[in-house]
Design a protein around this nucleic acid. Structure first.
Length: 460
RNA sequence: GGCGCGAUAGCAAAGCGGUUAUGCUCCGGAUUGCAAAUCCGUUCAGCCCGGUUCGACUCCGGGUCGCGCCUCCA
């Protein structure tokens, strides 16, 4: 029973073994908080939350850090436009982010470090790099000297010369070499800044993650995750900084990167104006549906987000919760899912689509069978689903969820069901059907069964 | 220009060198006072061209098409 993960560094699936037995250290790049987060920001969170759940099942101790970037030029710009400080703005959006991530049923990470709380750590690391000849000062900037590192470019599998050929950005004149990147940059009097050996300024993008990892997790961590686009330059540069600051010591053992989310077949971008904010999606779909949609494709694939995907996800969850509703009065047996196909699928580089299909298989068995096996099946299904953060609510709550928002009065529905029950007993089927129609008009569907009549909100 | 990814049925999406993926949808049947849910069954696959093999959706080569990254975008 071992976990296998695809390691970006080696470009193959590898057996996962933590550096310290029984203790896993994982870091995932969180958002820059200058706005509400979009669905693309949510994918790594959901994916690595699932990994976090799997790891916790396998190891005694899992330390999971997910940062908040609260100093950045985009934050400065947004704050200036709003007439507030970067602290106010970033605190506001960090809170909104936490709210959205909770709505998507993500667990709290063990640690949520903030960049601005680690300025001193960053300065310390930059000093170490300067002292060791891996960084230099030029025009109040401190730059990392990529040529001072033997195998810079290894993670993203590119040579320095290749990178520069396609570069789309002008090279700043103070750089010794075009590939050098900023560790520290000066701030004007009107810009946020911190005192440093190189004058008042602020950190470059990459140094925060390196410094926060060093502070909270140590020099070598097991897993570092994030979106595929972070491989270069962000993670390549993090790796360079940390490894050089630590005398060549390995920084990350397993690099994991999730694929992008597209919207109706197109990349999300400002120019296309097709950003999908999690907040807006949550107004239309339960968080569990959005989470299910994210997990319905393998994390390394691209995922096309569309209304159809969400509707299908909703339908699939209906089907799964339908089975759980059947056994809602049966106490689930505490089972070990070590050998369950769903768990095995997750151990194979987080194959969530396959794991979900196993959930369907279990649901199918529950629907079909009766008797003592149901308690075991229910236990297995709920345990497996829990590893993905799915199917943890009461089935009736699922089906009747959003009743209040849809303007449906549950008490009234119950009363009408009661009246219809009487009508049926009196063989007054005309009245019974009229009630069904009345409820249907309200968006309520009745389902008769041997155990009685249940109701649910019809998809709107 | 460099590096990399993908192409599976109406839609979404996996595993697998030979045996049903799975879900949604469509169609037929069972069940139901009616319906829903459920069950049973059926139809619909693997971009193109070669090669390896007894056998390829699965391995190899070539092509076509689509996509991503190449300094602050998850």
């Amino acid at each position: 029973m071992s976990l296998y993960v695809y390691n970006t560094r080696t470009r193959q699936k590898e057996k996962f073994e933590p550096q310290e037995p029984g203790r896993v250290k994982m870091y995932v790049c969180g958002p820059t908080v200058y706005n509400l987060v979009h669905i693309g920001n949510a994918r790594p969170v959901v994916v690595f939350d699932t990994l976090f759940r799997v790891l916790r099942r396998l190891y005694n101790e899992v330390i999971y850090a997910r940062n908040i970037t609260d100093i950045d030029d985009k934050i400065m710009k947004a704050a200036r436009e709003n007439g507030e400080t970067i602290a106010e703005l970033s605190a506001r959006f960090a809170a909104e982010y936490q709210k959205d991530m909770a709505a998507l049923l993500n667990l709290e990470p063990t640690i949520t470090p903030y960049a601005t709380h680690h300025i001193a750590d960053m300065i310390g690391m930059i000093e170490a790099l300067v002292n060791q000849g891996h960084a230099y000062v030029a025009e109040n900037h401190v730059l990392f000297d990529v040529k001072s590192m033997e195998d810079y470019g290894r993670l993203s599998n590119r040579s320095l010369d290749d990178m520069l050929e396609g570069a789309r950005v002008e090279v700043a004149p103070y750089k010794k070499y075009a590939g050098d990147f900023v560790l520290w940059k000066p701030s004007s009097d009107s810009e946020p800044g911190w005192d440093s050996p190189w004058g008042r300024g602020r950190p470059g993008w990459h140094i925060e993650c390196s410094a926060m990892i060093e502070r909270h997790l140590g020099e070598t961590i097991d897993i570092h995750g994030g979106g595929r686009d972070l491989i270069f330059p962000h993670h390549e540069n993090e790796l360079a900084q940390s490894q050089c600051a630590h005398g060549g010591k390995q920084y990350v053992r397993y690099w994991m990167h999730n694929g992008f989310i597209n919207i109706d077949g197109e990349k999300m971008s400002k120019s296309l104006g097709n950003y999908r904010f999690v907040r807006d999606l949550l107004a239309q779909y339960p968080g569990e549906v959005i989470r299910f949609a994210i997990l319905s494709a393998h994390y390394r694939s691209e995922l096309d987000f569309s209304a159809q995907l969400l509707d299908q996800s909703k339908a699939s969850l209906d089907s799964l919760y339908g089975a759980l509703r059947k056994v809602k009065n049966i106490e689930a047996e505490a089972v070990t899912i070590d050998n369950s196909p769903a768990f095995q699928a997750l151990l194979d580089d987080l194959n969530t689509p396959l794991a979900i299909s196993e959930l369907h298989n279990l649901a199918h068995k529950i629907n079909k069978e009766d008797g003592s096996s149901l308690a075991v099946l229910k236990g297995e299904m709920q345990e497996a689903a829990k590893l993905m953060g799915l199917l943890q609510q009461d089935p009736d709550a699922w089906f009747q969820g959003g009743a209040a928002e849809s303007g449906v009065d549950a008490a009234k529905v119950e009363a009408l069901i009661e009246e219809r029950q009487q009508a049926k007993l009196n063989k007054d089927y005309a009245r019974a059907d009229a009630i069904r129609q009345e409820l249907k008009a309200m968006g309520v569907v009745l389902e008769d069964s041997k155990q009685g009549t249940t109701w649910r909100i019809e998809k709107g």
